[in-house]
Simulated scan of single mutants.
Amino acid sequence: MKFSNYLIGVLNLATIGLSVPIIGGGIWLATKHDTDCVRFLQWPIIIIGVFLLIVSVAGFVGGCFGISCLLWIYLFVMFLLILSLLCFTVFAFVVTHDGAGHALAGKGFKEYRLGDYSTWLQNKVDNMKNWDRIKSCLSDTQVCNALNEEYPTTDAFSNSQLSPLQSGCCKPPSACGYTFENATLWVNPTNLSADRDCLLWNNQNLCFSCDSCRAGLLQNIKQDWHKAAILNAVILIFLIVVYSIGCCAFRNARREGAFSPYGKGYV
């Protein structure tokens, strides 16, 4: 009887520990300069982690002190939480499945196309009001500032390993045929009809209004969110195992007369 109490308490202590990497994953996303500009992505992870922490504390207290009402609430809410985490993890994998960089002949970097990514992600950056805010935030990160010093020549730039944001936002698409002056100064395009971004490029605002910049942001988001989804999937599997053991322990405790559904005490 006491063993069941302590087992339930220990299992809830484990779920308290599980909440830490979930919250940490959301905070990690918030510290990334790209996802910091798209705040709708990290908050679901942080909220789930905090909610798991609160519920696990309730289960821990209920298990250690035999407060059955807390345990009943814990088991019910934990089931809903696991279901929510499962739905969120599946959704994260689905929306980050599509999209990849396109390799270019003789170039060390890749280029990115907005249409390659999931419709849901595209809709988040297609809205002009949203994009104006995101664009302003990206500009403040000064993601393009160091390129001129790092890649002073055409050859150095062609062989560079640009990040998706740098490739999409700091230069015009290669198909436009612009001539390299420096990493952020391009002139004399030869094929403006190759891509609508060719007309959006200018040497003052660079390509922050381009679809390629939106695509570069989504590629970074995809990579970061995919990592967070993998972490969530691992935690979810462990959480289901812990919850299943907790249910068995709680059932055994009730069979032994340890808990009553009406409050603290014995049946």
Rank of each mutant, 00 (worst) to 15 (best):
F40Q: 12
A156M: 14
V187C: 08
N203Y: 13
F91A: 03
C64G: 00
F65S: 00
D140C: 08
V95I: 10
L41H: 03
L236F: 13
G108H: 00
F238I: 15
G59W: 09
F180H: 06
A253P: 08
I23S: 08
L81M: 10
N188F: 02
Y243F: 15
P261S: 07
G49N: 11
M1R: 06
P152R: 11
W43G: 01
V234A: 12
I16L: 14
D195K: 15
Q166Y: 01
A228H: 04
A30C: 05
E181F: 05
C37K: 00
D126G: 02
Y74L: 07
I23V: 14
Q166K: 03
F65P: 00
A194G: 10
T31P: 00
L121Q: 03
Q166N: 01
L239V: 04
L206T: 13
C176K: 07
T141W: 09
G115M: 05
D36V: 11
N5T: 12
P152M: 10
G177S: 09
V125F: 03
G106M: 04
P261W: 01
Q219T: 09
I134A: 04
T190G: 04
S68T: 11
A105K: 12
D155V: 12
D116W: 09
N232W: 00
L83S: 06
G66I: 00
G101M: 12
L85G: 08
E181V: 14
G26T: 07
F250K: 06
I245Y: 11
L236E: 06
L165R: 02
G17H: 14
L121Y: 03
P152Y: 09
A233K: 01
N202I: 12
H97P: 06
L217A: 15
C213L: 08
I230L: 06
N145R: 01
P189M: 04
F76S: 11
S4L: 10
L83C: 06
Q142L: 12
G106R: 07
W201H: 10
N127R: 13
